[in-house]
Design a protein around this nucleic acid. Structure first.
Length: 827
RNA sequence: GCGAGAGUGGCGGAAUUGGCAGACGCACUGGACUUAGGAUCCAGCGGUAUAUCCGUGGGAGUUCGAAUCUCCCCUCUCGCACCA
C-alpha cells in the first residue's frame, strides 16, 4: 500500500488538464454560460494567502458549475500598472516592466501549481500595449461624449507617492495605499464625469439586491450620497449679488436667522470690500487655509466663524440676515453657502449659541410640548412662525415653499450628490499615457484614433526621488499636433490604474482581439460576470469605477448590459494570530511553503474548511495538519477498499429492498450529503460545512465498511458512496480525487463527470428518531416507524420510563406531537 | 452620533424551517501498537454540586418548545460622519 504523496499526484493531473486544454472556454450559444471571476492580482512578487483563498473559492465554483453542465469562463490576468513596480525599480535598479513581467512569471507558476481551473489562453497584463491601447481609445470616446474634461482644481496630493489621488482613494485623510497624510494642491487634472451617472449608479444598487452584500450596497449609497432639497437664492442687502444655498429643509426657511459661507467662498472678497470687518475676515480665512483639511473636517471641531459685516435678505420674510464665514462650511459640497437655521440644525445651533445669534423655532414635533433647550430639533413636525404656512405639516411645507420660491424665481427643487468626478491624472511613470497633446496653436488636442496607441516608452530611467521621468524625456514629449502638424507637447501624466481594472473583465471575453476592444458576439455571450469574488476593500473604489465604466461603455455602444457583476461575494482576510499578515509583525504564512510541505489540495482544503468565505480566516498551522491528515486518511481508505470496489456512478440508483440496515444507512447518508453539499455550494457558498459534510460521509464509510464488505449489495452501496465522496470533494481538492478515481478503475476521468441527482427513495427511513420532552426538556428518545401517527407517537412517549419518572403522576395539560420530530408533554 | 454585522466549549466554527445546542475539525485526556512517537488506530472531551441541575453576551417577553422571534441593555468589528 502506497502512502499519499501530494506533489507527484498534483503535477500529474495538472499536466493532464493542461494537455487536454480542459479549461479553455469556447463560446457556444447552444450552451448555458457561467462566468466566474475573482479580482485579478497585482503582480507584486509572490502570491499570498489572500490570493490562495479568493482563487480557491472561485475555483470551487468554476469546477462545480462545470459539473452542473455550464459552459464556464474562468480567466486570469494581471493588474500590472502601478506604483510598487516603480518603487521597486527605484530601490533595486530594475526597470518596472522587467520587474512586473518577472513577477507575473513567478505568480503564474504558483497559481498553476495550486491547480486552479483557469483559462490561461485569455491571460493578459494591463501594461501590455495591446491592452491599454483600447483604454486610450475609450478616453477619446469619452472626450467626444463630454465624459472627460480637464480642470484646475484643489486635488489630493500624496507626498509619498508623488501623485494625486481620487477622492475614493483617500481614507480618513490618508492615502489608501501608503497611509501618508494627503495634502491639497491646485493642479490642472483630467476628470471622468462619473457624476453624470450618479443617479443610475445609485438606483441600480436596488437591482443588485440580495445578489450583492448589503454592506457593499450601503457603502456605495453613502459614497454617492444623494440628497433631495432645494436651491434658494438670497439677495445680498444693498448689492446686486446673490448667494445661493442648498438645503434639504426648505420648510425651515422662516427659521433662518443668518448665513454661513465657506472660507473659500468666491464672493467673499467682494462682500467684505471696504468694510471694517474685512481685516478680521481675511485673518480667519488665512488661518483656515493653513489648517489641514482633515482637521477642519473633523466633526468634533469647535464651531468658529466671523461676521463679514454684510447682510442678505430672506426671500420669503425679507428679514435681514447677517452673513458669517464659518469653519464648518465646505466649499466642495452643495454651493459652499448654508442658510443657518439654529433651531433645527445642530451645527447652526452650536454656532448661534457661541455668537449670540437668534434661535427661532419654526417646527414643532407632533404632540410634544417643549423641546430640549440645549439642542436643535431636526425631525419633522408642524410649522409655526412661518406666516400663512403655520400649522402645516413640514413635509407639505417643503413642497409649498419650493413652489413659492419657484414662482418668484428665487429657488428650485434640486438633488445634490456627495460623489465627485473621478480625477484620473497621475504624475507617475508606470501607467497608461493619456492620449492628449498640448499644441501652441491649437491648445489641448486629443489624438485621433489612428494615432493610437501612445506607447509608454520603456527606455527611460526612473528618477530616484520618484518623480516621473516622462516630462524630461524628449523623445516622448516632443510631438506634432494632429490638427495643425505644428510642434506640440504630449501630456505626461498617466491614467489612474483603476482605469485598467474598470473593464478588464469584459476584455477576457475575447482577450486577444486586435481589431477592436471587444467582439460583440463574445461580449454578448459571456457578459455579465455571473459571480464576482474579491475583497471588501474594493467596496467603493474598483466596484464603483467598474460599474461606471460599464454604463459609460454601454452608452458608447460597446455594451448592452447595465451592470458588470450579477452576483458579488466578498471574502474575508486571511489573518495569523488574529492580525493581518505583515513583514513587520513576522506573521506571514507563505503559500509556497505550504505547497512544498502539504501540497495544493491540503492548502485549498484548509482555506475552505477553516471559516465561511465572508469571514476573516485565522490561519492555524495545526488546522492545516488536520486537513492534511484527512486527505491521508482518504487516500488510505481508497487503497484499502480498492480491491473490493467496482467503478460505480455516484449516488447510483438502486433497489433498496434486499439491502442490509447498514447498507441502507450509508445510502441514506450519501444522498443526504449530496443534498446538503449542493445547497452549501450553490446557495450559501458555505464551503466549510460542505467539507464537514464530506468528512461525515467518510466517517460513516469507515464505521460501516466492515459490515458492508460482507455481501455484494453492500459492496455496491460502498462503491457508490466512495464515488460520491470523490465527486463531492473534486471541486475542492481536485488532484487527489482524480487520482483516487483513476485508481478505483474508472475508464473516464473524474472531470467529465456530472454532478449527481439524488434518489428520494434513498432518503426514506423505516424508523425515525423522535425526541421526547417533558416541559420542553429532553427526557427520552424513541425510534418509531416513519408512518406512525400522532396518537401512537404520544402513546409510545408515555411508555418511556424516564418520562414517567418526570411526570411523577402529575396531570398532563397538553401534549404536542410532531411526527418525525418530537413529542412534548406539558404538565 | 447614524447605519450594518457579530457575540455559542480551551480554539475555528455548526445548527439557514422555532423542535436532540455544540456537527466537522483543532487542541487536550486515557488506551492500543511500538526500540521510539510530533505517525497510526480506539475511546473520551460544555460546566458543575453528577441530577427532576445549569448552559448559546445580560435582562424581560411570546410559545408546548427560543442560539433562532419581539423589546430593553452591554460588548466587539466594519462602514459613514460638521454633507447643510
Amino acid at each position: 500500500m502506497t502512502d499519499y504523496q501530494p506533489q507527484p499526484i498534483e503535477a500529474k493531473w495538472q499536466k493532464a488538464w493542461e494537455d487536454k486544454q480542459l479549461f479553455q472556454a469556447v463560446a457556444d450559444p447552444k450552451k448555458e454560460k457561467y462566468y466566474v471571476l475573482e479580482m485579478f492580482p497585482y503582480p507584486s512578487g509572490k502570491i499570498h494567502m489572500g490570493h490562495v483563498r479568493v482563487y480557491t473559492i472561485g475555483d470551487v465554483i468554476a469546477r462545480h458549475k462545470r459539473m452542473r453542465g455550464f459552459n464556464v469562463l474562468h480567466p486570469m490576468g494581471w493588474d500590472a500598472f502601478g506604483l510598487p513596480a516603480e518603487n521597486a525599480a527605484i530601490k533595486n535598479g530594475i526597470h518596472p516592466a522587467k520587474w512586473t513581467y518577472a513577477n507575473i512569471d513567478e505568480m503564474r507558476s504558483q497559481l498553476k501549481s495550486l491547480g486552479f481551473s483557469l483559462d490561461w489562453d485569455r491571460e493578459f497584463a494591463t501594461c501590455d500595449t495591446s491592452y491599454y491601447a483600447w483604454e486610450q481609445l475609450f478616453f477619446l470616446k469619452f472626450w467626444e461624449k463630454g465624459l472627460v474634461y480637464r480642470k484646475k482644481a484643489p486635488v489630493n496630493w500624496c507626498p509619498d507617492c508623488n501623485t494625486v489621488l481620487a477622492n475614493e482613494q483617500v481614507e480618513d485623510g490618508v492615502c489608501w495605499r501608503c497611509s501618508t497624510e494627503v495634502e491639497h494642491r491646485e493642479l490642472s487634472q483630467w476628470f471622468l464625469r462619473i457624476t453624470a451617472y450618479a443617479d443610475e449608479l445609485l438606483s441600480y444598487l436596488d437591482k443588485l439586491h440580495t445578489a450583492w452584500p448589503e454592506r457593499v450596497r450601503i457603502m456605495q449609497e453613502n459614497w454617492i450620497g444623494r440628497s433631495e432639497g432645494a436651491e434658494i437664492d438670497f439677495r445680498v442687502a444693498d448689492r446686486e449679488e446673490n448667494i445661493r444655498v442648498f438645503t434639504t429643509r426648505p420648510d425651515t426657511l422662516f427659521g433662518a436667522t443668518f448665513m454661513s459661507l465657506a472660507p473659500e467662498y468666491p464672493l467673499l472678497d467682494t462682500l467684505i470690500q471696504g468694510r471694517p470687518e474685512a481685516g478680521r475676515v481675511r485673518d480667519f480665512v488665512q488661518q483656515m487655509r493653513k489648517t489641514e483639511h482633515i482637521e477642519r473636517a473633523a466633526a468634533d471641531q469647535e464651531k468658529q466663524g466671523v461676521f463679514t459685516g454684510a447682510y442678505c435678505l430672506n426671500p420669503l420674510s425679507n428679514e435681514k440676515m447677517p452673513i458669517y464665514v464659518a469653519n464648518f462650511v465646505l466649499m466642495e459640497y452643495g454651493t459652499g453657502a448654508v442658510m443657518a437655521v439654529p433651531a433645527h440644525d445642530q451645527r447652526d445651533f452650536e454656532f448661534a449659541e457661541k455668537y449670540g445669534l437668534p434661535i427661532r423655532t419654526v417646527i414643532e414635533p407632533e404632540g410634544a410640548k417643549a423641546q430640549a433647550p440645549d439642542q436643535a430639533y431636526t425631525g419633522p413636525g408642524r410649522m409655526l412662525r412661518s406666516g400663512d404656512l403655520n400649522g402645516l405639516d413640514s413635509e407639505q411645507g417643503k413642497r409649498r415653499i419650493i413652489k413659492r420660491l419657484e414662482a418668484m424665481g428665487r429657488g428650485k427643487k434640486t438633488v445634490t450628490f456627495r460623489l465627485r468626478d473621478w480625477n484620473i491624472s497621475r504624475q507617475r511613470y508606470w501607467g497608461a499615457p493619456i492620449p492628449i497633446v498640448y499644441c501652441e496653436a491649437c491648445g489641448t488636442v486629443p489624438l485621433r484614433p489612428e494615432d493610437l496607441p501612445v506607447e509608454l516608452p520603456l527606455d527611460v530611467a526612473t528618477n530616484p526621488d520618484g518623480r516621473s521621468p516622462l516630462p524630461d524625456f524628449d523623445p516622448f514629449v516632443q510631438t506634432v499636433c494632429p490638427r495643425c502638424q505644428g510642434p506640440a507637447r504630449r501630456e505626461t501624466d498617466t491614467m489612474d490604474t483603476f482605469m485598467e481594472s474598470s473593464w478588464y473583465f469584459a476584455r477576457y471575453t475575447d482577450a486577444h482581439l486586435d481589431s477592436a476592444p471587444f467582439s460583440p458576439e463574445a461580449l454578448h455571450y459571456w457578459m455579465p460576470v455571473d459571480q464576482y469574488i474579491g475583497g471588501i476593500e474594493h467596496a467603493i473604489l474598483h466596484l464603483l469605477y467598474a460599474r461606471f465604466f460599464t454604463k459609460a461603455l454601454r452608452d458608447l455602444g460597446y455594451f448592452s448590459i447595465d451592470e458588470p457583476f450579477s452576483h458579488l461575494l466578498t471574502q474575508g482576510m486571511v489573518l495569523k494570530d488574529g492580525a493581518k499578515m505583515s513583514k513587520s509583525k513576522g506573521n506571514i504564512v507563505d503559500p509556497g511553503e505550504m505547497l512544498a510541505r502539504f501540497g495544493a489540495d491540503t492548502t485549498r482544503l484548509f482555506t475552505l474548511f477553516a471559516a465561511p468565505p465572508e469571514r476573516d480566516l485565522d490561519w492555524n498551522d495545526q488546522g492545516v495538519e488536520g486537513a492534511h491528515r484527512f486527505l491521508h486518511r482518504l487516500y488510505r481508505l481508497g487503497e484499502e477498499l480498492r480491491p473490493f470496489l467496482t467503478p460505480t456512478e455516484p449516488c447510483r440508483p438502486m433497489d433498496g429492498d434486499g439491502l442490509s440496515a447498514a447498507a441502507r444507512r450509508l445510502r441514506r447518508k450519501e444522498h443526504r450529503t449530496l443534498l446538503k453539499i449542493t445547497r452549501d455550494i450553490e446557495e450559501f457558498f458555505q464551503f466549510n460545512t460542505a467539507v464537514a459534510a464530506v468528512m461525515e460521509l467518510v466517517n460513516e464509510i469507515n464505521a460501516l465498511k466492515a459490515e458492508l464488505l460482507k455481501d455484494a449489495p453492500g459492496r455496491r452501496v460502498l462503491s457508490s458512496a466512495w464515488a460520491s465522496v470523490l465527486v463531492f470533494l473534486y471541486p475542492m481538492t481536485p488532484h487527489i480525487c482524480e487520482e483516487l478515481w483513476e485508481k478505483t478503475g474508472f475508464a473516464a476521468e473524474l472531470f467529465v463527470m456530472s454532478w449527481p441527482e439524488h434518489d428520494p427513495a434513498a432518503l426514506e427511513q423505516d424508523e425515525v428518531l423522535v425526541v421526547v420532552q417533558v416541559n420542553g426538556r429532553l427526557r427520552g428518545k424513541i425510534s418509531a416507524p416513519a408512518d406512525v401517527d400522532q396518537e401512537q407517537l404520544k402513546q409510545m412517549a408515555m411508555e418511556i420510563e424516564n418520562v414517567q419518572k418526570h411526570i411523577q403522576g402529575k396531570p398532563i395539560k397538553k401534549m404536542v406531537a410532531v411526527p418525525g420530530k418530537l413529542v412534548n408533554i406539558v404538565l
